[in-house]
Amino acid sequence: MARTSSGETAATSVASEEKQNSITALCTLDISTIKIEPHDDLGIIIGNIPYRSSLTKIEGVTIDKFTQWIEPPKKHGRLFFYSSEYEILIVKYPISLVHERLHGELYDRLRYQTYGTSLFNEMVGYGSTTYFPERLLCNNKQTIFLNNDPMISGSTTAGEGDSSLGLMVGSRNNGWPTIVIEAVWSQSKAALVAKANWWLEASNGAVKIVLLAIGSPLRIQIEKWKASPIPPSPTAPSRPNTRLHAALLREAERPKVYPPILMIERSSTDTPRNNYRVIGSPLRLEFRDVLRRDPVPPEGDFLLQADELQAYAKAVWNALPDNDS
Results as ranks from 00 to 15, higher is better:
Pro94Ile: 01
Ala252Cys: 14
Pro133Gly: 13
Glu251His: 14
Glu85His: 10
Tyr112Val: 02
Ile44Met: 08
Cys138Arg: 12
Arg101Thr: 03
Ser155Lys: 11
Gly104Gln: 06
Ile63Gln: 13
Asn21Met: 02
Asn147Tyr: 15
Glu105His: 05
Glu160Asn: 08
Cys27Trp: 06
Lys224Gln: 11
Arg250Met: 09
Glu105Met: 07
Gly159Trp: 02
Lys65Leu: 03
Ser53Ile: 02
Ile144His: 15
Lys19Tyr: 06
Lys75Tyr: 12
Ser96Met: 06
Ser128Met: 02
Ser22Leu: 04
Ile90Leu: 03
Glu87Gln: 12
Asp40Trp: 12
Glu122Ala: 00
Leu285Tyr: 08
Arg254His: 15
Ile58Pro: 01
Gly116Pro: 02
Met1Lys: 05
Leu248Ala: 12
Ser268Glu: 04
Ser238Phe: 13
Val210Trp: 00
Ser155Glu: 12
Pro133Met: 12
Asn274Trp: 09
Leu29Thr: 03
Trp69Gln: 06
Lys226Glu: 11
Arg3Leu: 05
Arg250Cys: 10
Tyr51Gly: 07
Pro177Met: 04
Gly175Phe: 08
Met263Ala: 01
Leu309Gln: 09
Lys189Thr: 13
Lys65Arg: 08
Gly161Val: 01
Asn148Lys: 13
Trp225Glu: 04
Thr33Phe: 01
Ser186Pro: 07
Ile49Tyr: 09
Lys75His: 14
Leu309Tyr: 10
Gln310Asn: 10
His99Lys: 05
Gly104Tyr: 05
Trp199Pro: 01
His76Met: 11
Gln20Lys: 10
His103Lys: 01
